[in-house]
Design a protein around this nucleic acid. Sequence first.
DNA 1: TAGTTCGCACCTAGGTGAAAACGT
DNA 2: ACGTTTTCACCTAGGTGCGAACTA
Lengths: 241, 241
Amino acid sequence: MHHYYYYYYYYKLLFSFLPCNPDGESLTTCTKASQVSGVRVQLEMQALWQQFDQLGTEMIVTKAGRRMFPTFQVRIAGMDPSADYVLLMDFIQIDDKRYRYAFHSSSWLMAGQADVAAPSRMHFHPDSPARGAQWMKQTVSFDTLKLTNNLLDDNGHMILNSMHRYQPRFHVVYADPAPNSYLNANRNFCSFAFPETQFMAVTAYQNHRITQLKIASNPFAKGFRTPDPLTVWVVWNSTVF
Amino acid sequence: MHHYYYYYYYYKLLFSFLPCNPDGESLTTCTKASQVSGVRVQLEMQALWQQFDQLGTEMIVTKAGRRMFPTFQVRIAGMDPSADYVLLMDFIQIDDKRYRYAFHSSSWLMAGQADVAAPSRMHFHPDSPARGAQWMKQTVSFDTLKLTNNLLDDNGHMILNSMHRYQPRFHVVYADPAPNSYLNANRNFCSFAFPETQFMAVTAYQNHRITQLKIASNPFAKGFRTPDPLTVWVVWNSTVF
DNA sequence: TAGTTCGCACCTAGGTGAAAACGT
DNA sequence: ACGTTTTCACCTAGGTGCGAACTA
């Protein structure tokens, strides 16, 4: 429990007004504090994200909570090295639709209006708050973030509706030490959304090509990889002799 | 990097003046701030610590860093639930002696004066700073703390001299939000030392009974346990038929 | 039927002491 | 001799998709 949690609901409200801007740039253009106005954010593993995005990324949600893969990771530049920042993520539903997967056409179809929205939460990066110098030193990874479909979750996981589409967002909040700093709250943050990180929440993979790409690229799924032809050839010949 | 790290060397100096008090009570009696004056700390797994202590606890130190076992864990009461605290540990050499183990008599013997003292460090609990309510909610565990004999360690591990005796200490620091709070530094903390957690730093276990107790009680050493007679009997009979 | 849950085999990642190799 | 370092088999702990069972 840190002081900045006081601002939880304040920032949550602020963020809710942001447009779902798909250009990966700062979502707002109003005057910003110098500590955040120059912040630049670059998505890591962008090529992998794009591979998934081309197939239509799916993310598993479970009752106990499931990690995202690919993991949301960013490189940050342009912070004030000596200022304190809080880094966090949230997820916004991209549209008010529910989807279903048509296996015969291997595509997603709209299937009516969205269910009641899941309780919206924010996920603070566990190193928050930390100085700009610390954040910029190396890649910032949200690998501990988990997705759940349990509306009553009390593990602090992100609650999403299965069969709905989401856009992850990333927020950089300057921890202003000034008294009554909440008055500057709308000047003290900047937000980023990378369109290639959009995904469909599912309880089981629908698109087989997504499953195969997960198996091929996630180290924890190595057990499901079929050995490549060269490996098969080597093993075959070495067991024969 | 948090603000309270500014006080690192200030508190390090303060702590260096504390006596090595073996009664597990607060080490100082001078007037304390209300946020720390009522703090009570109870050692977890005390029975296990005492078992080890009776044999003469040994802790492995390695170049890469080794965890302690038993882990230093405490339950805390009497904090101000809404005040912020920083929790940390350090290790003080119990005497200025170097030791060696006499296998024939299964006992430790003094073997001259202590080597040059290893660089003294403090280990902040990674959840610091946090509110009293958060710390008191559940056991506070220092399971990520590691011991090393590498004088040039740059992983933030605790540096100890092998074949020297140490007393772990636990410090509760009130994160005073007042300006110039360092002026109150000596009033804003309290310290605890549990004599049953004293140990000898070693690079390899000397006392075989310590080794056996580690194997019997540390889950990660289960691979070295000899199956107990009942299990042997059951397995024997179930494989025969 | 369409979607969710659960147990499972198979991984990654890393914490153990044993024992051999290495210093001094 | 005595103490340290390194490698290793064997664990714990927990992240994977699979497939059967379950639910409405």
